[in-house]
């Protein structure tokens, strides 16, 4: 199968890999790079599990071919924090019980990162608007919104 050389930056690390043009970015991140924090739930664009940041903007990686992001900068959940040092959003999700099975959590976190980057001071409605991009089958969403709200407050305190 024809392959194309792909060079990109993921979580600050540059990778150069041959890929088949049809390889979905979700599969490339998960299986070629082994960054399995990005999940896959439907592969037809609805659930949002596969969300990452491409050049700082959220995107569904199941609706993106890896070849398309040649030269781009990708951020996945692995870049946020570690179990020993959680990102404020992760900390807030933990404290507010914003996850149960955890499958949607990476997508939810990255969606919140984009939101707070664009709007450090969101209203609850704005949080709902942004976070409604992804399904969650476990939590009923309320505690996810609580978590983003509390992270926004915490991050403001931290930044200044």
């Amino acid at each position: 199968m024809e392959q194309v050389q792909l060079t990109l930056t993921v979580n600050g690390t540059r990778y150069s890999r041959p890929v088949e043009p049809r390889c979905l970015l979700s599969d490339f991140i998960r299986h070629d790079l082994g960054l399995t924090g990005t999940h896959v739930g439907c592969e037809h664009g609805v659930c949002g599990m596969c969300t990452v940041l491409i050049d700082g903007q959220t995107a569904r990686t199941c609706l993106t071919f890896a070849v398309q992001v040649d030269g781009a900068e990708i951020t996945t959940v692995e870049a946020l924090g570690t179990p020993a040092k959680l990102h404020p959003l992760q900390q807030a999700f933990w404290e507010k019980h914003g996850l149960q099975c955890g499958y949607c959590t990476p997508a939810m976190l990255l969606t919140a990162v984009e939101l707070l980057n664009n709007n450090p001071n969101p209203t609850r409605n704005e949080i709902c608007e942004a976070m409604s991009a992804n399904l969650c089958r476990c939590t009923g969403y309320q505690t996810i919104v609580d978590a983003v709200e509390s992270a926004a407050a915490a991050m403001k305190g931290e930044a200044r």
């Binding site: 960054l35 399995t36 924090g37 924090g81 179990p83 999700f93 955890g102």
Partner: peptide
């Protein structure tokens, strides 16, 4: 949670 929050959960497809 800490491992799930950081994308280190190791679900079957991982």
């Amino acid at each position: 949670d800490p491992r799930l929050l950081t994308g280190r959960g190791k679900y079957i497809d991982d």
